[in-house]
Amino acid sequence: MSESDHPCLTCGACCHEYRVEFSVYELQSMGGCVPDALAHEVHGTRWRMDGTERHPVRCMALMGRCGKQSICGIYAQRPSACRAFEMGSERCHEARERHGLPPLELPWDDYPLAA
């Protein structure tokens, strides 16, 4: 399996389901890695990825269609909330199910990916 086949880089279901909030210190302008242009202030030091504040949710960093050739345009620069989202977790399976995608199958070792 190549890295381009990794479910987290081709699925996008979580990018269509969940609000993504993070600390202002994760923004590039504050020394972090998240591009400022893709986020907005929520309150004080809390920021949110654009597109995740409304319904239907669609993170502005997502490129392509959910489940079909979708990829996070800032995967290496994604906020901590996205980094902490666990592949194969109950929330992952719920998001995939809502978008007509099957649950991920074990073993997880078949899905190598650097954090």
Rank of each mutant, 00 (worst) to 15 (best):
S2D: 12
E3I: 15
D5W: 06
H6W: 01
P7R: 08
P7I: 11
C8P: 00
L9A: 10
A13Q: 08
A13R: 10
A13T: 04
C14T: 05
C14I: 06
C14H: 03
C15Q: 10
C15F: 08
H16Q: 11
H16P: 02
E17H: 08
R19T: 11
V20K: 02
E21Y: 05
E21R: 07
E21I: 09
F22M: 02
F22H: 00
S23W: 15
S23M: 07
V24Y: 12
Y25F: 06
Y25A: 00
L27Q: 01
Q28V: 11
S29Q: 04
S29D: 08
M30G: 01
G32Q: 00
G32T: 04
C33K: 13
V34G: 03
P35S: 14
D36Y: 01
A37N: 08
A37W: 01
A39S: 13
A39C: 04
H40A: 10
E41V: 02
E41F: 00
V42D: 04
V42Y: 01
V42I: 08
H43Y: 07
H43T: 08
G44Y: 07
G44R: 02
T45G: 05
R46N: 14
R46G: 03
R48T: 05
M49F: 03
G51Y: 04
E53I: 00
E53L: 01
E53V: 05
H55E: 05
V57P: 14
V57I: 09
V57F: 00
C59V: 07
M60I: 07
L62R: 04
L62S: 06
G64F: 11
R65K: 13
C66Y: 05
G67Q: 10
G67D: 11
G67E: 14
G67P: 06
Q69A: 14
Q69T: 11
S70I: 12
I71H: 15
I71L: 11
C72P: 08
I74H: 08
I74R: 06
Y75V: 02
Q77M: 15
Q77V: 07
S80E: 05
A81S: 07
C82P: 01
A84K: 05
A84I: 09
F85Q: 05
F85I: 06
E86G: 10
E86P: 07
M87C: 06
M87I: 05
G88R: 02
G88N: 03
S89V: 01
E90M: 10
E90P: 03
E90R: 07
C92H: 09
H93W: 15
H93C: 09
H93S: 12
H93F: 10
E94T: 03
E94F: 06
A95C: 02
R98S: 13
H99N: 11
G100L: 12
P103W: 12
E105P: 06
E105S: 10
E105M: 10
L106G: 15
P107V: 15
P107D: 14
P107H: 12
P107N: 13
P107R: 13
W108D: 08
D109N: 13
D110M: 13
Y111S: 05
P112V: 11
P112M: 09
P112K: 13
A115V: 14
A115G: 08
